[in-house]
């Protein structure tokens, strides 16, 4: 008797459980809960990864900015990690004086902007030529563009140095002046190379423009041609306007990289006053000799202030154009 009762009650529990489990309302609730928790955990993981990566990128930048306000006492105080106890602007004062900041930054920006304009003009033309016209040996010539991207300028630095140390165009200059010209320690070599499509990373820019122009519909040009527009008019007034995303991308890349570049500047001995990124490398030494400050830790604080000053224009440009820039990179032909 007792046994059956127990079995009965067990059966009842099972039945109750079945009803309980098949209650659609409850099942839906449970599923929603489970998926909510899953989404929450996944989101948490994503957030941790993204925030962590952002910290790795931003950490040193924040550190540099913070340390540029350190006074001597803060530097020697091991308890100070990020926020200075006695902040000082002296580092900026000295760095501005030694960098000759405003004129140098102005000249650097002018230098990079002028090179950027040439870069955009020449590279877009070449990219357009490769994208839209058929001519003999086109495949081979485009392979040369790829070679230019792949082989870094470092491989040919010595011949370039020699070329510009004894600069001559088919012996014409020697004929007129009696000797070859030494163009080193002027910015002329950089301008000449950029003008002939061999500047800093020109190959990459040509590639980007080529990809973008290939993606534009041919009908645009055909319409222009039928309406009687000449080749150059079509190119400048129609194609270049249509290629705005890639123009913006190349413009920013070219300007910022030129501003940052020390390789070309060092190779051709371009004056420090034109290239702030080169001048900043020597700032610690010149402060050390003229201010009799020999502690490398303190000198580093001055360098930090200088670096902040140097980064400032880039950051401003980036924040101003950020939206256009990332969209431009995505839409322009950087993707093969």
């Amino acid at each position: 008797m007792e046994k059956t009762k127990e079995r009965f009650s067990l059966k009842g529990a099972k039945a109750k459980y079945d009803v309980f489990m098949s209650d659609t309302q409850f099942v839906n609730d449970r599923k929603r809960w489970a998926s909510n928790i899953k989404a929450f955990i996944l989101g948490l993981f994503k957030a941790i990864i993204i925030i962590g990566t952002c910290y790795v990128v931003l950490g040193p930048v924040i550190g540099i900015v913070a340390r540029s306000f350190f006074s001597d006492a803060d530097n020697y105080n091991t308890m100070v990690y990020m926020i200075p106890q006695e902040p000082t602007l002296e580092r900026y004062d000295v760095a501005i004086k030694f960098l000759d900041y405003l004129p140098t930054a102005g000249k650097s920006i002018l230098y990079s902007v002028s090179l950027m304009l040439i870069q955009v003009m020449i590279c877009s033309m070449v990219g357009y030529g490769f994208a839209r016209y058929k001519f003999p040996l086109k495949g081979l010539l485009f392979a040369c563009v790829v070679v230019m991207i792949v082989i870094p300028t470092h491989t040919i630095m010595l011949p370039l140095y020699m070329t510009f140390a004894n600069f001559d165009v088919f012996g014409i200059i020697k004929l007129i002046k009696g000797s070859t010209v030494n163009l080193l320690s002027t910015p002329v070599p950089v301008y000449i190379m950029t003008l002939f499509g061999c500047g800093l990373r020109s190959g990459l820019y040509i590639y980007i423009f080529n990809q973008f122009f290939r993606g534009l519909p041919k009908e645009i040009e055909e319409a222009a041609f039928v309406d009687g527009a000449g080749t150059w008019y079509t190119y400048f007034r129609i194609m270049l306007i249509n290629a705005m995303p890639s123009v913006i991308t190349v413009a920013i890349f070219s300007m910022v990289w030129q501003y940052n570049d020390t390789f070309m500047a060092k190779l051709f001995l371009v004056s420090d006053d034109l290239v702030i990124s080169k001048k900043i490398g020597g700032i610690a030494d010149s402060i050390s000799t003229s201010m009799k400050e020999y502690d490398p830790k303190i000198l580093e604080l001055y360098t930090n202030a200088g670096i902040v000053l140097m980064m400032l224009p880039i950051i401003i440009i980036y924040i101003a154009l950020q939206k256009h820039f990332i969209e431009g990179v995505e839409r322009s032909g950087i993707v093969g």
């Binding site: 033309m125 070449v126 030529g129």
Partner: peptide
């Protein structure tokens, strides 16, 4: 093809 070559001439 001549126009195309003109475009890539500087490079």
């Amino acid at each position: 093809s001549i126009t195309g070559l003109l475009f890539i001439l500087p490079w």
